[in-house]
Amino acid sequence: MIDTLPLTATPARRATTLAGAALAVLIAAAGCTGPDSARDGGTPAVAPRAVSVTGSLCDQLPADGEPGSPDSLVGQPADQALGWIPVLTTFEAAVRATGLAEELTPTADVTILAPTDDAFAAKFSRSHLDELLLHDTDTLRGLLRDHLVSGALPVAELVSAGTVTTLAGTDLAVTAHGDGARLDVRGDGDHADAHAETVCADYRAAGARIHVINQVLGTLPTTAGDEDDHPAH
């Protein structure tokens, strides 16, 4: 976990001797490019499952054999798996900021509708995003819960269900969209026209399905759209 800091392990003193294990992860191993993410499977006799992800963005994400490939995430805790999908840095940071990782454990299967970094940037100004990540984590937690659905549902099951309800209680109408799904927020409120599409669906993690989506759902107002989106140095 990135957010736990071993304060006792103060670095940077020549006198300290590095633990062998700590050093080992730092050293280049010829012929091996990625961390040993296969160990989570724990059953060496079984061939790795070929996870098939679908959507227009999948080609741009880590592919077979690369660190963060869909196969390598099977069996990882969901919050860890999110950290390997490079377009989800905002969502992943939000999960850590809100302590939501506990709700993503395998004891309660979950579907994660994870908006991309571009989606967050199109939704919130930079200062608003900082406010959510650093101060207003209750609001952020509510926002994230509008991106979670009980049960680890493949995108095909989302479509066949027709309607799903997020953990925040919002109904989403689900329709087929290419190989993936379109999600429409149901209701007659201000956000009735909010919707998103899956851009890389059907990542599998321990007790979870992760569908990368291209818009932020939920009921928060859009604050992006001025100079604060990309503040100067």
Binding site: I2, L5, A12, R13, L26, A28, P67, G83
Partner: peptide
Amino acid sequence: TALGAQYTSDVNEYAYTAAID
């Protein structure tokens, strides 16, 4: 190591820094 899929975390930074030191 992650071929750009992840940035270097704080914990990894401290280990890497200490190793160079």
